[in-house]
Design a protein around this nucleic acid. Structure first.
Lengths: 220, 220
DNA sequence: ACATTATTAGAGTGAATACTCTAAAGGTCA
DNA sequence: TGACCTTTAGAGTATTCACTCTAATAATGT
């Protein structure tokens, strides 16, 4: 792999594991066994590394939120949307973790992220509209708007919530379960809008996703 | 005012305005016109300042979430809960802004915050139960649990969302309106569970709170 | 008045950190 | 081979920051 790509990948991993604040450019370089000079040959500064990682993420999400044009949405689509989005959220979790700071120090990034947010919100709305067209949910436009916004906030805040409020180590198994719990919480948000024929089947489908959450919250 | 209290107050303000990461102990001292030595006479380190500010916040919220024992809950209680909680969130907004980092560097704070979170969640549940007893909302226990959790996440993430996703300056007027928009979003979460006699009156009551949000999101 | 304690000033320090600079090494193509 | 461009090493630097140390000053009690 090219040095530049190795830097991006290593940075992403280190940022995710330790938080952007705790990872210096020297750390990244020595982690890769290269010199700081080398790193700065490929990137103007730390911000640019972050910016390039962000571009990767943005591109991925833009693809993942596409609505199929050749067929109506089915309920399983919704589950898949959530699964891939949550996976992406996990793979780039440092971005949302330190988002406020990252946007504060980089005006270009802030503007770009803002456009991204609006695009996402529009896509989320399209998805919900599609589900309404398929008679899976029933809601007014206004309800869909606030539902979409709440979904966005919840989704982008989920790992932050997990990390701060649940004393969970970053071991894979428990984290993965709590990722599923995030999906469950989103379904809880939508549940009241499901049409009669879908309410119970969907509830049953996602029921088990929420169990791990109950354990963590009530026991400790 | 005692020097110690002045340090706490100034720190809180500076942290809120600039983020904990961007405010050094030397900044705090020079902002108050005192020496660093003086600051460190009153506080062991920066963490302890943060910890003490947190204690203030925790105490305040614990009081605000009390459920009245001598009377049933009415719908206006819910609005007041949200208003005081959001105001507190604003007054201590740096806490949630940098929460992940603050908890990472201070294990005691993390444990304490965890207990606090569980206490809050229980209180939120009590409030929703009270509203159910008053026939204002209708929902199963499980629905109340996930509703309560979603409320918590939404409330604690609201200012972060505002700051990152809406290009809003910290001028008072617009921020205050968007604080109200946060309240509107919470009501949107609860709306499906309102009983028939409350659904329309409540919707009308909070309708105007959401308008500013529509403007910000759709226009820019 | 005097001893004792609480508070404050302010210079200073060691560690960290983002980034620079120079020169060397490697690759490519005539 | 040799000229030229790309990539890399690694020592170094300027700055920042949390925190320390010593000594001076105020406050308090007897």
């Amino acid at each position: 792999m090219k040095t530049r790509d190795r830097i991006i990948q290593a940075s992403k991993e280190l940022f995710n594991e330790q938080g952007e604040r705790n990872v210096t450019t020297n750390h990244i370089a020595s982690h890769l066994g290269i010199s700081p000079g080398n790193l700065y040959y490929h990137f103007k500064n730390k911000q640019q590394i972050i910016f390039d990682i962000y571009l990767e993420y943005e591109k991925q999400v833009d693809q993942q939120l596409q609505v199929p044009l050749d067929r109506p949405l089915i309920i399983n689509d919704k589950l898949i949307y959530l699964q891939v989005i949550f996976q992406g959220l996990w793979d780039y979790r440092f971005l949302h973790r330190d988002l406020q700071h990252l946007l504060d120090i980089d005006e270009d990034l802030h503007k770009r992220y803002n456009d991204f947010f609006k695009r996402c919100l529009a896509q989320v709305h399209s998805i919900y509209s599609g589900l309404r067209d398929s008679k899976i949910i029933d809601a007014t436009d206004q309800e869909l708007r606030s539902l979409g916004l709440n979904t966005w906030i919840l989704v982008t805040s989920w790992f932050g919530f997990m990390h701060t409020n649940l004393l969970v180590e970053e071991g894979q198994e428990e984290s993965r379960e709590l990722l599923n719990a995030g999906i469950y919480q989103i379904f809880a948000l939508e549940r009241p809008f499901l049409t009669d024929e879908y309410r119970d089947p969907v509830s049953n489908m996602v029921f088990k996703l929420g169990e791990s959450l109950d354990n963590v919250i009530s026991l400790k």
